[in-house]
Simulated assay, not measured.
Amino acid sequence: MRVVVWLVEGTWPACVDAVRRHAPQATDTVLLYVDQHDVPGLAHGAFAGLLGRARSEADPGDRLEDLDAPAATRLLDAAAERLGRPCTRLERGGRPEREVVAAAAGADLLVLARDGDRSRPGPHSLGPAGRFVVDHAPCPVLLVWPEPAPEAGPPPSPPGPGVH
Rank of each mutant, 00 (worst) to 15 (best):
G49P: 10
L75W: 02
D59K: 07
T73K: 11
R63Y: 04
A80V: 01
E57C: 03
G49C: 03
E65C: 04
A80H: 11
L67W: 11
E91C: 09
D68L: 11
R89W: 06
A79F: 05
G93T: 15
L75E: 02
L90N: 03
A54W: 09
C87Q: 02
L90K: 07
P96R: 09
L51A: 13
G61E: 09
G61Y: 13
R53M: 11
A71N: 04
A48Y: 05
L76I: 10
G52Q: 09
E81C: 00
R89C: 12
G84E: 12
L50K: 01
T88V: 15
A58H: 12
A54M: 09
R55F: 01
D77W: 02
D62H: 11
L90C: 12
L50D: 05
G84S: 12
R55T: 14
A79L: 11
E91F: 00
E81Y: 00
R92N: 03
R53T: 12
L76P: 01
E57F: 04
A72H: 05
P86C: 03
G93N: 06
T88Y: 00
L51N: 02
L50M: 08
A48T: 06
L50P: 01
E81G: 14
E97I: 00
T73F: 00
L64E: 12
L76H: 04
L83T: 06
L64H: 08
P86V: 08
C87W: 05
L90I: 02
